[in-house]
Design a binder for these strands. Structure first.
Lengths: 197, 197
DNA sequence: GGAGTTATGTTGACGGTGTCAAGATTGTTC
DNA sequence: GAACAATCTTGACACCGTCAACATAACTCC
């Protein structure tokens, strides 16, 4: 019995995740069907159901992995910033992740999972955690340097929203082109920096 | 022949748009199928194809209408601002539109049309126009009041990205709750205002 | 007013999707 | 080796968008 023709795949769980990720990169969420995926993995249509409850669960697992990557980037950049409130480098790295992995970013933050679907507890956990870490990390950097009456947490949330908004506008193919995006983000950071004492 | 049983509907084009909009509000883009829509309009599955080239065209028409509404709000608020750079009221109105019409907002800016689909020329036109007007209007308000070396257009783009990002985060059901959203946006506006001379 | 043309509506069909049910095969455990 | 669980299979169902072919109504022109 050859290795390709045996009844049990042997490592279908990981194969599915890996193949799903490349299929996601190639065709986006819309092009990611379980049937295509199964075919690519050389397995019947319903085989994936023995490893993931349904499509939503598979996509959540995919997004959870991507969040772990992003979280790692965030942590590295916050550490690299040391005690300096200059988050320019951080922003650049964030934008790079989003533009280099647009379909993953879309899956991580898109409504496919958060609105239409049902985000798994693990996904929720890693997503909230990465945001919390960012917000707390940044607000620690800004603490005491902002004008009176300015909540550093709010500024952190606003900056996140700005970056995220830029990513979405670009990824969704609407307004800003990529070079503009960096310029806009630099302007936004400069605005925050200018407000520091 | 009763009014309900006649062969020709009489006003199917508008009926479809109207029914599609309520279906959109009720169930989101994912729940909006042409077959449901046709049934609601009391017509066969393929009748809509005589009024819209395909589903994409219908959704574009829907989004175009919504953009016209948003554009109207933007214009009104910019006029109301007069010569003052305080865009707090503007932001509030924008957020209101997005939170009161979340599914429409999603359709307007989401990848359904801009990435997966093919935005019609009319949609592109009204979308770009509303953004251009906002950016130009706001940068006119900020002109000459910003610190040296600050491009008002970039600030306008950044502020749009911030608002849009907040709307997406909220609409997609991710991070910020509605009351936080206003607080964050206020903080962002305050940051811009603080940079003015 | 009748004939021809266009607009509008219909049913039937095709390939695609996610997912459930029932059965086949393999691995694991006593 | 028997019993059981894990894994994989085919078959089926209900959706979906859309095309082709046909039916009916409205509109136009002589």
């Amino acid at each position: 019995m050859t290795q390709n023709a045996r009844y049990h795949h042997g490592d279908l769980h990981d194969t599915l995740l890996q193949e799903a990720n490349t299929l996601l990169s190639e065709q986006g969420v819309e092009g990611l069907s379980l049937r295509k995926l199964a075919e690519r993995a050389g397995v019947s249509r319903t085989a994936p159901y023995h490893h993931f409850r349904d499509k939503n669960a598979l996509l959540c697992a995919l997004a959870t992995r991507a969040f772990a990557q992003l979280d790692e980037i965030i942590q590295r950049q916050l550490e690299a910033a040391g005690n300096s409130p200059d988050i320019q480098a951080f922003v650049i790295e964030y934008l790079r992740f989003a533009t280099e992995n647009p379909e993953q970013y879309e899956l991580m933050f898109g409504r496919t999972l958060w609105k239409s679907g049902e985000p798994t507890p693990e996904l929720k956990e890693v997503a909230y955690r990465s945001f919390r870490r960012y917000a707390e990390g940044l607000s620690a950097l800004l603490q005491g340097r902002l004008p009176e009456g300015t909540d550093p947490l709010r500024v952190a949330q606003a900056s996140w929203a700005t970056i995220h908004g830029l990513c979405r506008l670009t990824i969704d193919g609407i307004y800003v082109n990529q070079e503009d995006m960096e310029a806009v983000s630099q302007q936004a950071v400069a605005l925050i920096m200018a407000a520091l004492s």
